[in-house]
Design a protein around this nucleic acid. Structure first.
Lengths: 143, 143
DNA sequence: TATCTTTCTGAAAATTATTTTCATTTTCTT
DNA sequence: AAGAAAATGAAAATAATTTTCAGAAAGATA
């Protein structure tokens, strides 16, 4: 698990401490591929660890974002979500507007065209987000 | 002005009323090409019309979104912004992470590739958002 | 036009998500 | 083991958005 090491390096580099809560939160965060809001992860953790605090979960997710392990995303439902970022891999999202299903995808051609657009406007891209909203396979057939 | 008619049709179809505030807010909203948050538009309106209320501005922007005149967007600064939607025209954004400049662009090839991705996953796209974040020309040269 | 019903408005309060505060506990150096 | 620095969890604070409500305005009806 490289991400655990990455996080620990980040902590020590910043003079921050490695605590049992941070280990636990990272472990649980990495375990699942879902896109957690602070609240969702907090509720999940609380089942096994009732003493954990909401603020700690939130602060830790922010740390993940800061060190690049996670990215903050907003899919328009009013909650910020954190998703696991895999090194040098970027992916975008298909979001079902009916059931909330989130599918990740990657498309190299789209990425290249984005760079082209940016250079036409003399922008230097740091990152991007692409989300396609619509009905997933299941929700389409139900209607 | 077709959008004014569109909004009025929407109102009467829904049994809603045409008020001086709604007319004023729509007019001001369409006048500018910027991406207003509720607060920004409220502050702008208040200069000329000190009696207008924040809630009214917000509710009206929501109506614009509901009838398709405006789209809600979130560029990650914690405020929802509303932008004017031009019929059958879709555009994406370059957002400067330093000065907040927002540039709109359109790229037909990217749109086509998006459709392709969606069909590969059996999704039916309703809409999408693509935002490229980075440094604009001016901010690049300043650094 | 006068009246009536419904919707709107603006101010304030409520709600929701996120962030901060602070007393106490834990980590990690010496 | 002791001290310094940072982390935790609960509660309070903040910020954006939404709702409430009493009075005002719109627009249908007579």
């Amino acid at each position: 698990m490289d991400r655990v090491k990455l996080f620990n390096d980040f902590l020590s580099q910043k003079g921050l401490k490695s605590t049992s809560q941070r280990k636990l939160i990272l472990e649980t965060f990495l375990e699942s591929e879902s896109h957690y809001s602070t609240e969702e992860l907090y509720l999940k953790l609380r089942k096994e660890h009732p003493r954990i605090g909401y603020a700690t979960v939130h602060r830790t997710l922010k740390l993940f974002a800061e060190c690049g392990i996670a990215a903050e995303r907003n899919f328009g439902d009013g909650q910020t979500r954190f998703e696991s970022v895999h090194a040098d891999e970027h992916h975008d999202h298909l979001v079902c507007t009916n059931c909330g299903l989130i599918i990740e995808f990657e498309d190299q051609k789209i990425e290249e065209l984005q760079k082209l657009v940016a250079s036409q406007h003399n922008f230097k891209i740091e990152n991007h987000r692409l989300e396609l909203y619509g009905l997933c396979e299941d929700c389409r057939s139900q209607k």
